[in-house]
């Protein structure tokens, strides 16, 4: 049975494109390497400051709906409070019926950082959104397979909120420059389809029913 188009605002493809484009926009922004200001700054200091639009960390993660294993990179903005990440994930066939490849974009805002010890800091709360695209589904829906608006939802694009925290350890520095930092984090997330199921079944479903957990490591360089 076909379902009516419940949510006209639901345009996951557009959101995915917008999020994926963020790092590209950043990279395309200022490339004025031969401007006087940059030359002066370079002359003043032996090591150039990190350019904000370049990726400054690598992540490896399991779960969170975007792979048994996903590997990502991203940039940190707004004094390291805002992380924009792109991740590529993989789910083996034994676990999903088919082999799945996932690409995800994630924006995460962490307003506070609490120092616990000289090298240890806690990020008590991060909030954000993610969106993902999945390849390899057995029946993703082909053009012409269904009449218009037959299924109102996308099989391949997911969007959802993310909530988490992390613990950072500043690694002993090897060479002069920015100290490297290792962060262990977890994220609780859900997705659009779980959220609508929950919203319409408040008696039968609870938040733990729709929550997913991700565990990850982030190396900031």
């Amino acid at each position: 049975m076909r379902r009516a188009l419940l949510t006209t605002w639901y345009k996951p493809h557009a959101l995915l494109l917008a999020l994926l484009a963020l790092p590209l926009l950043a990279a395309a922004a200022p490339t004025d390497t031969d401007s006087v200001a940059v030359l002066n700054r370079r002359a003043d200091r032996p090591t150039a400051p990190r350019r904000w639009y370049l990726p400054n960390h690598l992540t490896v993660q399991t779960g969170g709906g975007i792979g048994m294993l996903s590997i990502g990179t991203g940039l940190s903005l707004a004094h390291d409070r805002l992380d924009l990440d792109v991740l590529a994930g993989y789910v083996p066939r034994q676990h999903a019926g088919t082999t799945l490849s996932v690409v995800a974009a994630k924006a995460k805002y962490s307003p506070w950082k609490l120092p616990l010890a000289p090298r240890l800091a806690l990020t008590p709360l991060s909030v954000g959104v993610y969106t993902s695209y999945t390849w390899g589904l057995r029946n993703p829906g082909k053009p012409g397979q269904y009449p218009d608006d037959y299924y109102w939802f996308s099989n391949t694009v997911r969007v959802g909120p993310v909530l988490g925290s992390g613990l950072s350890y500043v690694l002993p520095s090897t060479t002069a420059g920015h100290p490297h930092k290792l962060t262990a984090y977890y994220e609780l997330a859900t997705n659009d389809l779980y959220l609508i199921s929950y919203a319409q079944n408040r008696r039968a479903l609870s938040l733990p029913d729709i929550a997913t957990l991700a565990l990850g490591l982030k190396l900031t360089f």
Binding site: T62, G63, G64, G65, G89, H95, A211
Partner: peptide, 14 residues
């Protein structure tokens, strides 16, 4: 809990 909670994909078949 984590076996269920750590979800690789909503489309997983586990």
């Amino acid at each position: 809990g984590s076996c269920q909670l750590i979800e690789y994909s909503p489309n997983q078949a586990y």
